[in-house]
Structure formats: C-alpha cells, structure tokens
Design a protein around this nucleic acid. Structure first.
Lengths: 167, 167
DNA sequence: TATTGTTATACTCTATAACTATA
DNA sequence: TATAGTTATAGAGTATAACAATA
C-alpha cells in the first residue's frame, strides 16, 4: 500500500495529491467490490447501473446510461442483459422511436437495490468515519472544482453535456 | 457522467462525497490510461510497477511489490515478465534466500520511466489546475485521514504494516 | 511445515468496430 | 445519411488455487 511512492517530482504537490486520491479510492473501492461480491453476489458496474435507474423511475435509455456510467454502449448492453435475465431490470418501448428502449428497475430490482444500498451506505459512512461533517463538506467542495476541471477536458467532451449536479 | 446520481440516502453527506471522489478519480485515471497507451504504449499497472522501483534503487522483492501495488502475486509475476522481456527491469538474486529475487529498473528502464514520469506529471498538474497550493494541501491533508482510516480496516490488515508516508 | 514465487485458469470489465433496424 | 442499440472480438486486469523450490 505504497502507491504514493510514485511521487518524485520537484513540484510534487499535485502529484502527491493524485497518488493519495488514487490510494484512497482504491482502498474504499476494493472494500465495496469485495462486500458486493460476498454479500450480494454482484459487481460494482451492476450496482452502478441499478443506482442510476433508481433515480429515474421512468427508466433511462441505453445511450443515457452509457453516458452516465462513462462506459461504451456495448458494455451497457451486456450488463443490462444480465440484469434482465435475473429479473432485476426490464426493457420498455419508447413511443415514437422504435430503435430505443427505456431501461427500468422492476419491483424486484428496486427491492434488491434498496437492500444493497442500505448496506452500501453503511460501508461508506464507515470509510469516512474519521471526518466530521465540516470536513466532509470541505472535501466535497474541493473535489467539485476538480470534477469540473476534468469534465471540461474529458476526451469526448465535444459530445457530452457537462456533468450534472444532483440536489 | 452522472455517477453522483447514486446518492439517495437520508444522511447523504458521506455517500455524496464518495461518489464525487470516485468520479474525480475515474475522470483523471481514464485520461492517464489513455495517454499512457497512446503516447508510450504502456498501461497503468506497468507504470505503477516501474514507479515503485524508481524509488528503490536496490530493487524490491516480488511480495513487497505485490503489497505496495495492492494486487496478488501472480499478477506481479505477469507484469514483471513483460517488463523483463522489454529490457526495462531485471530479476537479481537475493543473497541468503534463493527463493527470492530483487526486481530492479535497468538503465533503459530508468530512462524510459523518467520520460514517462515527466509527461505524467504534466497531466496531473493540469488535472488539478483549478486548485491553488493551499487547496491542494488541504485536500491532501483531509485525504490523509481517509487513507489512515481505511488502511486500518483493510481486508488483509492483519498481514500488512500500516501505509507508509513519503517525505 | 511455512514461505516465495510461478503457473494455470476463469471471470469481469472495457474499448473498438462491424452490424441491424429504424429515423 | 444518421442514430440507437447489439454483436463479436480482443485485451487488460484481477483473484483463486495448485504447484515447485527453498527455508
């Protein structure tokens, strides 16, 4: 766990910050992936897709899911296929465009997601348990500036609208 | 790019922070991976392995590399094999234990890494370009608390020493 | 017996590009 | 001609477990 050994520059502040950011994310992400696998026999991308749908009761189109999850369309098809097979999501027609679908959580999928989300939140609260509320909000605000900067220079920024903030 | 839609709790501060942290890391990591591939025909784990070695002129043993890179031993063997084939790193004997090797950068590997590291730093400076120095150090310090918290509860914390800080 | 490292294997995730159907 | 989604493929990345050599 010494990713931060990568810092070696003469102006190392940004580099050190990046390595620490990466270390923190990997530590937490590894825990989340392990728990999702062991407790719910699922994966982070599957959980991610379901959580996108949880916020959109009317469903989302494939290309919208692809944009939000930051992966290409073929992958969304694959993950969606799995979840459809398990009865957790469904493809619904879009009136007026027979090429498109709305992907939506089924009642079973919503129940399943709610169970996972409750546990997931507890893991995350634990992960940030050493910070008080002011520190959490300070971090959130600073990372907001980082997010904005890197959304603008993202490789396909020409096609994508800027990232949306949620209330 | 709406990973943050995953926040849905009634006590959402930690969750929102996590989703933003994940988004920021993914945005920057995607850029770094793409650049490493396009400009240097290499990958992040290869770069990571070389950067670990760059800080240890006498080399590192396989299990130490495995620990620092947070991946299992078999993977380190595979990446090391690639880099040995390309003449970038070498396996040297460890006196007193014929089971072990020291993995070390070759002169060619050091030169290659220095080239990449220079570019890499520029990408990272750009990624955090919207923050001033005080904000960078503030972020670094707050994430230090997160790192410490999650190193302690890491799945194999029984075997691993706590994370090391670099000067 | 325990440890170091390797090999073999399988699976998830990903991007790319060709393809089908519809607009 | 363009767009929405699928299929096919290849490769990265990872974990697991069995294995060999040495301690």
């Amino acid at each position: 766990m010494d990713l931060e050994a990568r810092g070696h520059s003469e102006h190392p502040e940004a580099l050190r910050l990046w390595l620490r950011l990466l270390t923190c994310t990997q530590l937490i992400e590894k825990q989340v992936r392990t728990q999702l696998r062991e407790r719910f026999d699922t994966t982070l991308p599957r959980f991610d897709l379901m959580s996108q749908l949880e916020r959109s009761p009317d469903g989302l189109k494939m290309n919208e899911l692809s944009r939000r999850m930051m992966v290409t369309g073929g992958n969304v098809t694959g993950i969606t296929d799995q979840l459809v097979t398990e009865g957790l999501v469904e493809r619904l027609p879009v009136e007026g465009d027979r090429r498109s679908f709305r992907i939506r959580l089924t009642p079973l999928g919503r129940q399943s997601f709610d169970d996972m989300a409750r546990q997931h939140e507890a893991w995350i609260v634990q992960a940030f348990g050493s910070l008080n509320l002011a520190q959490i909000e300070n971090l959130h605000q600073l990372l907001g500036m980082v997010k904005q900067q890197n959304s603008q220079v993202s490789p396909d920024s020409a096609n994508n609208p800027p990232p949306e903030e949620n209330p």
